[in-house]
Nucleic acid binder design. Structure first.
Lengths: 139, 139
DNA sequence: CAGTATCCTCATTGATACTG
DNA sequence: CAGTATCAATGAGGATACTG
């Protein structure tokens, strides 16, 4: 306990950790952000928008299985967090475009790393799963 | 439709996309993996285990707010996916150690990129949020 | 210590219908 | 087209008690 260079995380108070944005702290605001970003549809929205601006219906079509309600809700929370821009053109019929803000582009890159890894390693993962499936039939 | 180098994703069938592990496809197995990894506690478990082997109670203590049940459940699904190893030492009182498999280490690195980004950019994010809060009082 | 079992609550999600 | 509103169902999550 005599020095600095080690990981000081264990010496800071809970409040300090929260202020610092430590995601392991119960009430840290970063938890909420993480949940928005990692929500079932949040991840996918970010990844799709990394390809460029999309309209509501385009997102709905690309993201298999999302309902209007969930898409709308997801878009709102991500917009709230400052990750995406909503541009509603005043025409009829309505035309709304969603795109990533610079901040959003940065998170999107991070989640894209994750989704890409999963897609590419799905075979390895499915194999690893099988191995462990056999637990009850080794009579 | 005359060539190769472009993104061919739009030309493959839905079934093909599922087989390939396309995360945007409704019934792709990668969705399930993504949900385990991105679950509320899954992310945090992976990040903590990146620091090395931990016991159940250590994980519980480090991850603020997690209940025994949720931790147990999360650990099970991640183990099922082949991301972590559960070593139960046959002693009394019980002693169980959780650690990342090589596969798990790879996903953990990806999610760690995300959580680290969020922690480091929390100030920017909270600022961006404030900006958009003002929507109803511009009378 | 490391869980499982049970019960309970409430948030997330989805289907459907409606609107500017 | 781009949503909102409403209702219904599912499941995530938590509290507590119990067990090997």
């Amino acid at each position: 306990m005599n020095d600095i260079s080690g990981p000081s995380a264990e010496n800071v108070s809970l409040l300090e950790r929260i202020r610092m944005g430590e995601i392991l702290a119960r009430d840290c605001p970063s938890r909420e952000i993480l949940n928005h970003v990692c929500s079932r549809w949040g991840v996918l929205v970010l990844v799709v928008l990394l390809d460029g601006t999309h309209r509501f219906s385009e997102l709905r079509r690309k993201i298999g299985g999302v309902s209007e309600k969930m898409l709308s809700q997801t878009l709102q929370s991500l917009e709230q967090d400052g990750f995406l821009d909503r541009k509603a053109l005043p025409v009829v019929p309505p035309h709304v475009e969603y795109s990533l803000t610079p901040l959003g582009e940065e998170v999107a890159m991070q989640v894209n790393g994750l989704t890409t890894w999963i897609e590419q390693n799905l075979p390895r993962i499915m194999d690893a799963r099988q191995t462990r499936k056999t637990t009850a039939e080794d009579s």
